Each structure stands twice: as C-alpha cells, then as structure tokens.
Computed example of a mutant assay.
Amino acid sequence: MRAPDRRTALRAGLAVLGTAAASAGLAGCSDGKGTGAAGSAAPDTPNPATPAGPVSPSSPASPADQAPPSSRAPAPGEVDHAGTGRAQVALTFHGDGDPQLAQALLKEAEAGQARLTVLAVGRWLGEHPEMARRVLDGGHELGNHTENHVDISRLSPSAAFTEIQACAARLQKLTGSPGVWFRPSQTQHADAMLVEQARRAGYRTVLSYDVDPLDYEDPTAAQITERLLAAVRPGAVVSMHLGHQHTVAALPAVLAGLKSRGLAAVTASELFS
C-alpha cells in the first residue's frame, strides 16, 4: 500500500488534535438544581479559569489538572487576599444545599475551633431560615450571595441591585443585619457595575477569593485537602461550598493542615481587620 503523502498526513494529524482539544478542558460549574455525588445542590460558582459546561461528579479533576482561580487583580472595592501579614486565613462557604450537610460542616468547624464566613443565597435562607441563626450562634459570619444565584454579571445594573438587595433584606429580617460582605454569584470577580450596586445595597466591599479547591465538583476529601493546602498562604481567602459531603469529610484534615502551619481559620471580618 502506498504511504500517504505529507498533505494527507498533516490533515489527519490536525483532525486528531482538534478532537483532543474539544474534550480536554475542565468545565466550570453551573447554576441549577442538579445533584452531586452526595445528593447536594448544584455547585455555586463557576471556575473562571475554565470554560463553562457540565462537570461529571464521577470524574473529578485531579490536582494536576486543576485550573487555578483567575489571576485578575480585584476591582476597586473588592478584596481577595489580606496583606496584614498575620498567620490567618478565611474559609468562606457559599451557603446553599442540604441543610443537614451544612449543620455537619459547622459542627466540624466548631470542633476544630475555626470561624467561617458563610455567603448565603437568599432563597436558601427562605427555605431554611433556621440556618441564619445557626451560623451566627456558632461564632461564624453570615453574608450575601444574591437572592437567586443567577449569573449576576450578565444582569442590568437595576436587576443586579435587586438581586443583592433582596438577599440583604432577607438577612436583615432574619438576623437584624444585612451582613458585612457581598459575594457575586457565578463569577469570581466583580466588575465596576457590581461594586457600585453592592454599595447601593449597603456593602462597602465585595469579597472575592484567591484559593479554590473546586470542591463543588465533588472530588474526594483527600483531593480537596491536597488542593487547598497546596495553594493556601497567610491572608488567603478560600472559596468552598456547603451542601457537599466530601467537603464536610475534608474539613478536619484541612483544619489540621492549617494548624500544622500555624495558620488560624478566622472570619473574613477578622482577616481584614
């Protein structure tokens, strides 16, 4: 049989590369009501460093494949890392999902003497209003993660304000305070419009993050722990999620790893004070 000429071979090679490229990227998370490996709510925020699309919880990304959070500098009025030099980190949790898993995670945090910041979705608090007091009574901090967890960066300014304000009003009703922090939904960083709308709703600062172990993809507890501890530094703000069984299972090892490095897990308000 005559060997293919160079042009035919080149076309075949490009076709193979194109097929590989189409399936290689890690997908971000989506907003919705799907379930993960533990029957938890769908992931709360997309990984901004990867293309959007569905993620199979049965095939979590390995640490080698993990894409880091966006390296974009925070917008004016937004923070993602504290420069105090103190040996502290903030473990922040997007508040949604099975309240029993949330309760279990809070118990693990309190057993490890950690104080968390929970950025709650308003509709979640509407469905489980008892969780607002549970968070605060455990010594943790409660903030705003929009009312309906829409892709807020795609909204008009007035619609974005409505999302922020509705959650703020719910927090005020349940706890007597709208909380100190706002975190936008389905995006790591705010733009100038979102910072402005957050300020209109009473939030001086938008809280982003600089460490993301991708726990919403439901990797194993060991993978969550390894990813987080490999990236965390003094002053870090870590993004994690309530409602995921493997996150609950990972927390004791995460806290032990932080403690071994002399790092205390404190609320975001403590971290930036």
Rank of each mutant, 00 (worst) to 15 (best):
C29T: 07
A190F: 13
A231S: 07
E226S: 09
M193L: 14
V89C: 09
R6F: 08
L251P: 03
V16S: 14
I164W: 01
P51H: 03
D210Y: 01
P178N: 06
A236T: 12
K33L: 13
S269M: 05
L171H: 05
A256C: 03
R200W: 13
A73Y: 00
P63S: 08
V135E: 02
G202E: 14
G32A: 03
E147C: 13
F182D: 06
V232H: 00
E110L: 04
R261L: 02
A9N: 09
N144A: 14
L101Q: 05
A250T: 08
T225M: 04
R134L: 10
P69M: 01
P4N: 01
A67D: 02
G53M: 05
A249T: 12
Y209W: 15
A221Q: 02
A104W: 00
L174K: 05
T247P: 15
P234S: 08
P43N: 11
Q186C: 10
L207F: 10
L136I: 08
A221K: 03
F182K: 07
F161A: 10
T162M: 03
H244E: 12
G138F: 04
H128Y: 12
L101C: 00
W181E: 07
A132L: 00
G139N: 06
E110D: 09
G139M: 06
P60C: 07
N47Y: 11
A198T: 08
S40H: 04
D212Y: 09
S156V: 04
A114T: 05
V55K: 09
D137S: 09
S156N: 03
E217I: 09
H149M: 08
A24R: 11
A109H: 01
H81T: 14
A268W: 06
E130P: 00
A82W: 10
E217D: 11
P184C: 10
A198D: 08
H140F: 08
G138N: 02
Q165T: 12
A41S: 12
L119H: 04
H128A: 02
A104Y: 00
S158K: 07
D65R: 15
L26M: 03
P51Q: 02
L229P: 01
D212L: 11
A67T: 03
D96F: 10
S56Y: 11
P48G: 12
E78S: 10
H246T: 15
A27D: 05
P63N: 06
Q223R: 07
E196F: 08
P234G: 06
A265M: 02
G32Y: 04
R134A: 10
V118P: 04
G139W: 06
A41T: 07
A82N: 07
H94A: 13
G112V: 07
L251H: 03
Y203M: 14
D215V: 08
V89M: 09
D212C: 07
G13P: 08
A64L: 13
E141F: 06
R86L: 15
L242W: 03
L263T: 02
H81W: 12
P184S: 09
S71D: 07
E108G: 00
A15D: 11
L105C: 00
L251W: 05
R227I: 02
P54W: 05
L142Q: 05
A52Q: 14
T205A: 09
P46D: 14
T175K: 05
S56E: 11
E270K: 06
P48S: 15
A222D: 13
L10V: 14
P219R: 06
D210C: 07
G138Q: 01
A268V: 02
D65P: 05
L155M: 09
F272V: 06
E127K: 10
G85C: 12
S177A: 12
